[in-house]
């Protein structure tokens, strides 16, 4: 299952998506088994996150509205990176921001202490910045180009499927120097409180409910010319394999770890079987 992506060797194609596994410092048996982890989104300044409720379960999925709670890039560099270095996996830092300067600053500050970056231009849970860059090809291209100047490490861009064509954005990102594309981030969603007659939560939908949409989006960008990391509702090896068929080079698992933190271990095993079957047929 070993693969080489962005010039880096990964032990397998199953990665941990940003946001659901913190900084990967718990459940080390899991983090040490996956191909790479994408850290919780890091911003230039610390953020305390959104008020509760931050999570709401929906049919075969959930809405989250965490709001990029994180300790900020300075704390991350001094206190978290030394611990991350002890993990036996590749580390991609998810960078979020509200201005282009912030993205640039965070990438520069972290430097080459990690294995790569994932530019988060798709978080639906903050008021400004973030997703606005991801919905506009020109802005996406500018964010990527500026980050590109600050690092030689692999630069992946995480795209939103919300109110834009991921293919247009993906092309712009690749032209600006992105080494890879990851998609999809969560889907805009609202749940209502019928007693109060108003929304209970508005945030991003994830989980198996969004898998068909995610597969569509991955398939749409498959010929963009750089490796794609597919994600959205993966809960089994078969789901992961479907993403590979849709054009992804690797997959990331997210919400399923809330249901079972050890799920990635099972998915790696199951996916191995599918890939083995495939190579057997090819012979």
């Amino acid at each position: 299952m070993k693969i080489k992506l962005f010039g880096t060797h990964l032990k397998n194609r199953v990665l941990l998506a940003s946001g659901v596994f913190g900084f990967g410092l718990k459940f080390k048996r899991v983090t040490n088994s996956v191909g790479a982890i994408f850290t919780k989104g890091i911003t230039a300044q610390p953020r305390k996150g959104n008020p509760p409720p931050r999570i709401y379960e929906t049919s075969s999925g959930m809405i989250n509205w965490v709001g990029l709670e994180n300790p900020g890039v300075e704390y991350f560099c001094t206190n978290i990176i030394p611990q991350l270095k002890k993990l036996k996996t590749r580390i991609f830092v998810n960078i979020a921001g509200f201005t282009m300067d912030e993205y640039e600053h965070s990438v520069e500050r972290i430097g080459d202490t990690v294995d790569g970056f994932e530019l988060n231009i798709s978080c639906p849970n903050v008021k400004e910045g973030g997703i606005a860059f991801g919905q506009n090809a020109k802005m996406a291209s500018m964010v990527v180009a500026r980050a590109r100047k600050k690092t030689r490490l692999p630069l992946i861009v995480k795209l939103t499927p919300n109110f834009c064509d991921p293919l247009v954005i993906a092309k712009a990102c690749v032209e600006a120097g992105a080494d890879g594309i990851s998609l999809i981030n969560t889907v805009y969603a609202t749940a209502y409180d019928i007693k109060k007659r108003k929304p209970l939560i508005t945030g991003g939908l994830s989980g198996p409910a969004i898998k068909p949409f995610a597969l569509y989006c991955v398939n749409r960008v498959r010929n963009v010319g750089v490796p794609i990391i597919g994600m959205g509702g993966i809960v089994s090896g078969q789901d992961a394999y479907e993403f590979l068929l849709a054009g992804a080079s690797a997959v990331a698992v997210g919400s399923v770890v809330l249901r079972d933190p050890y799920a990635p271990l099972r998915i790696i095993k199951e996916l191995k079987k599918f890939i083995y079957q495939e190579t057997k047929h090819a012979r």
């Binding site: 659901v20 913190g22 459940f27 409720p53 931050r54 999570i55 989250n64 770890v257 933190p261």
Partner: peptide, 17 residues
């Protein structure tokens, strides 16, 4: 009590001020 996601500190879903 609250709606919990993971229950073990991974998802940051159950915040209390």
């Amino acid at each position: 009590e609250d709606f919990l996601g993971c229950g073990c500190g991974l998802c940051l879903g159950c915040a209390i001020m």
